[in-house]
Design a protein around this nucleic acid. Structure first.
Length: 255
DNA sequence: ATGGCAGACTCCGTCTGA
């Protein structure tokens, strides 16, 4: 099974990119974040025509998540049942015996702001819910835009980003708390090129200068991690016309 | 210290993202 995650920064704009990428990369499951579409405007027909079933949970202007799958999805859950949230950031489904969670973790804006506090509270409740999911589903995969760079290897300029949002110690501790549930950052199971990132600022030639962060992750429970044979970032779509500022991350799970 | 870029809505400026 091949699992992928991609923050598309508006599915309205990026639908052609998604379809083009799936044609070249026919993954089994693709988790999408930042659809920025209400459910009545979701392009389900175009995705189904490409051979994927799809579930989605959106809102106007911001956030919004979707799971595309070649195989049937059951037990679909929208949002964290233990966290009252008007923002649509979580979607879960069971696919071929694997519990797949698609998450768009809040950005946090800046350390010390209300949005930052919302992010930390959201993550604490997310951990609580994932603990229950992990207990119920030995095969658990949590994919998405975490808006956290796990450590300084995941930051183009650690000194400039030190203590800043996406890199602050409380955020990193919240991510480690998810690792504490037995979830592994599949990217770090393998030898990786230095300065591999999944997001680059649109401004100041961020991608061309590789001034990025690795904030999109595929976390796997023990049984899935032991069967994982690769995890890579696909930089190719970031070079296309009118790209998302994020690149897809892809993990391969063997038999 | 600010803006740079991009997308969406309030739509020719403002908010948010990361």
């Amino acid at each position: 099974m091949i699992l992928a995650t991609w923050n598309v920064n508006s599915l309205n704009v990026r639908l052609p990119h998604v379809l083009k990428w799936l044609e070249a990369n026919p993954v089994d499951v693709l988790c999408i974040q930042e659809t920025k579409l209400t459910d009545d405007k979701f392009p389900a027909a175009a995705i189904e025509a490409a051979g994927y079933q799809v579930v989605f949970s959106g809102q106007k202007t911001y956030n919004g998540v979707a799971i595309l799958s070649k195989l049937p999805m059951t037990d679909v859950v929208r949002n964290n049942p233990h966290y009252e949230d008007a923002q649509q950031r979580i979607l879960a489904a069971t696919i071929a015996g694997v519990r797949v969670v698609c998450a768009y973790v809040p950005n946090g804006q800046a350390v010390g702001t209300d949005k930052y506090e919302y992010k930390l509270g959201w993550l604490a409740s997310f951990r609580h819910w994932l603990e229950l999911e992990a207990a119920a589903h030995p095969n658990l995969a949590v994919l998405g835009d975490y808006n956290i760079a796990p450590d300084d290897r995941d930051v183009h300029d650690p000194a400039a980003w030190a203590g800043q949002v996406l890199c602050s110690e409380p955020e990193r501790a919240a991510l480690r708390a998810l690792f504490g549930l037995g979830l592994t950052d599949s990217f770090r199971l393998f030898e990786q090129a230095e300065k591999t990132f999944s997001w680059w600022d649109y401004r100041m030639l961020g991608f061309q200068k590789n001034k990025g962060l690795r904030i999109d992750h595929i976390l796997l429970s023990g049984p899935l991690a032991s069967r994982c044979s690769s995890c890579v970032v696909d930089r190719a779509p970031r070079k296309w016309e009118q790209p998302s500022d994020h690149a897809p991350v892809v993990a391969v799970i063997g038999d």
